[in-house]
Amino acid sequence: MTVPGFASPVVAQVTAIEASLLAFVVLTALATAFARDVLAAVIVFGAYSLGMAALYTFYRAPDVALTEAAISAGVTTVLLLLTLAKTTRLDHDAVFESVNLPAAGAAGLLFAGLLLTMGDIPAIGSPDAPVWSNPDVSQWYLSESYAQTHVENTVMAVLAAFRGFDTFGEAVVVFAGGIAALIVLHREVFA
């Protein structure tokens, strides 16, 4: 579980923050799933995104962390709250939802099956990981993106130049999402 750029004596510290962040994320995810009150679930989901942003940051994916921050803190909570304001919310005494045992068993089996595949996944930051050591994809982008696009941020170079047509499709999907919301809500105007 070492991270590139860190020597072996820091493994303990790296594991400490990884473990605490992962525990935070898993706990918030479970609380979101089991919360009886929908508003509480929305609030705890905001806390979940906070942990995920810190985790992405630690794994040196600042673009993903920034997206998580902007979308979750700024947009998702607000939109979910607006949706809740338009629906009826029942008052509950219990904090947690009662667990449906067959469904939990099925989900647990699926989880265990997925966990079996974890042994074949290379360690995080391993220099032998195919996603890193592949000379045709990752290394090629890392070495060629500045030479070909003159942009320091490799993520943006890949997004806007190397797979620009895909990004165009994504932007059109966002646009179509707005139109779909108009249709679903029977509106002709946004504002």
């Binding site: 923050i17 605490s20 706990l27 919360a35 509480a40």
Partner: peptide, 24 residues
């Protein structure tokens, strides 16, 4: 940097403690 990482881990533990109030 290692001590800073350790401090960040401590703050994350504090966040887990605060999570109790957010859930309960």
């Amino acid at each position: 940097g290692d001590f800073l990482l350790l401090a960040a881990a401590g703050f994350t533990v504090l966040a887990i403690g605060m999570l109790y109030r957010a859930v309960k």
